[in-house]
């Protein structure tokens, strides 16, 4: 399977499961909203340029907005994490050249602790951005903080369990 089709498939799966599954869970709905669709941006290859990364994140956000009928809301949050992702990767992986050994960020390619902090920080940023925009619309700050915190925890647990269940195979790239 080519890389392009793989990413396209992943994008569709994430968007559809986000809208039809995670946004439909009633008992968690008011304070804990698991949000996973932004994993698409987190799992894009290391080598992708910063401009394409930003544009892809924006498009992902717009597609999500397409479903939820809130144009710009998810897109704003996605653009933010698309912009910050390269800085975070540079920060968490200071040793030169490691990112060229593997294609995508994962626990295998980055190491467990850097990868978890990478995911956790971007998830927190995304949720904060998303929910503050939502709160902007609906008001009440303390509720927004509570929602960000709880949703962050729930999403993180879900992401890590997805990593454990659907193991992404990473090929070790060599120059030869």
């Amino acid at each position: 399977m080519s890389e392009f089709i793989k990413h396209l498939f992943r994008l569709l799966l994430l968007l559809l499961s986000q809208h039809f599954l995670l946004y439909q869970i009633p008992p968690l709905h008011h304070t804990a909203v698991p949000v996973l669709y932004f994993l698409f941006s987190l799992w894009l290859p290391f080598q992708i340029g910063r401009a394409p990364l930003l544009l892809l994140s924006f498009i992902t956000g717009m597609l999500m907005d397409f479903f939820t009928k809130t144009p710009g809301m998810h897109a704003a949050a996605m653009v933010l994490i698309g912009y910050l992702r390269p800085f975070l990767i540079a920060l968490l992986m200071p040793q030169q050249g490691v990112e060229f050994n593997y294609r995508e960020p994962s626990a295998q390619s980055m190491g467990m602790v850097p990868y978890i902090s990478y995911v956790a920080i971007l998830t927190l940023l995304h949720h904060f951005c998303l929910f503050s925009i939502q709160a902007f619309q609906f008001g009440d700050m303390s509720y927004m903080w509570l929602k960000t915190g709880i949703s962050w925890g729930v999403s993180l647990v879900l992401i890590l369990s997805i990593e454990l269940i659907f193991h992404r195979k990473q090929k070790f790239l060599t120059n030869t």
């Binding site: 910063r50 401009a51 930003l54 544009l55 924006f58 956000g61 907005d65 809130t70 144009p71 710009g72 809301m73 897109a75 704003a76 653009v79 933010l80 698309g82 912009y83 925009i133």
Partner: peptide, 16 residues
């Protein structure tokens, strides 16, 4: 990159 980021962000908020 920064300009692209800012313009996309501004565009998102504009849409919003």
């Amino acid at each position: 990159i920064l300009l692209l980021f800012l313009s996309l962000e501004i565009y998102s908020f504009y849409l919003l």
